[in-house]
Design a protein around this nucleic acid. Structure first.
Length: 202
DNA sequence: GAGGTACATGTATTCGCTTG
DNA sequence: CAAGCGAATACATGTACCTC
């Protein structure tokens, strides 16, 4: 899914009007705003950003202790809110709490990652796998023709596991269901395939 | 050696308490 | 009352070990 712009650019003029959610005089309705986001309404996200952005930035800045990092965190948080709005379940808590949770956890992850980067020395870096462990990193290597040649050398089962896991973003359990294979087999295929791909790329 | 299980670890989310 | 925070919980993933 494409990330929505939060600065109003790239949208039609009428989408830049304040989003009122059909009730301009009532208090801000986070729940309805998330529902609108889930239905692809960018105005709802813009309204959410206008209404809660500064406060979320304050939360992120307090945790990250850095304004630029906090801005990145809030931007990432709104991308997650946009992509995950459909998965929000009102029965599990308030919409506002959900939004703040996302922001706080992104901020906490950010400072955790920062700490990890600082303690990694050269030896640690050499031990980092060449292949990504997360879908986020796919962009770093997806353009490589070599990786695809190595993928082609894998058996069909393990090859599909890798593609489902790192291209489609499926969980191990989802892959097991898709391929009709036991979960343990899928885990082993992925682990062995990553090892084989690493060796192939060396 | 391949497949499977059990346990350990990491991450995301919610809940509830404390504070200003 | 809202914000901030830590605890608790659920889920996903990784890995060691066992069986065939």
């Amino acid at each position: 899914m494409a990330s929505p712009r939060l600065d109003g650019r790239g949208t039609s003029p009428d989408t830049r009007k304040p989003y009122t959610l059909n009730s301009p005089v009532t208090p801000f309705d986070f729940h309805h705003c998330l529902e609108a986001c889930a239905q692809g309404d960018r105005r709802a996200l813009q309204a959410l950003y206008d209404h809660e952005g500064p406060r979320l930035l304050g939360v992120a800045r307090r945790i990250a202790r850095d304004h630029a990092t906090a801005e990145d965190i809030v931007h990432d948080a709104f991308i997650r809110i946009w992509t995950g709005a459909a998965s929000y379940d009102p029965a599990r808590g308030s919409a506002r709490g959900w939004i703040y949770s996302i922001t706080r956890h992104l901020a906490l992850n950010s400072i955790r990652d920062t700490r990890r980067e600082t303690v990694l020395d050269d030896a640690d870096m050499a031990a980092v796998p060449t292949l990504p462990g997360r879908l986020d990193d796919l962009a770093l290597w997806s353009g490589s023709a070599k990786i695809y040649r190595c993928l082609e050398q894998l058996q069909p089962g393990p090859q599909h596991c890798i593609l489902h896991a790192y291209v489609d973003g499926c969980s191990h359990a989802e892959i097991a269901t898709l391929l009709g294979a036991p979960l343990g087999t899928v885990k082993a295929w992925i682990k062995r395939s990553l090892k084989a791909l690493r060796e192939c790329l060396e």
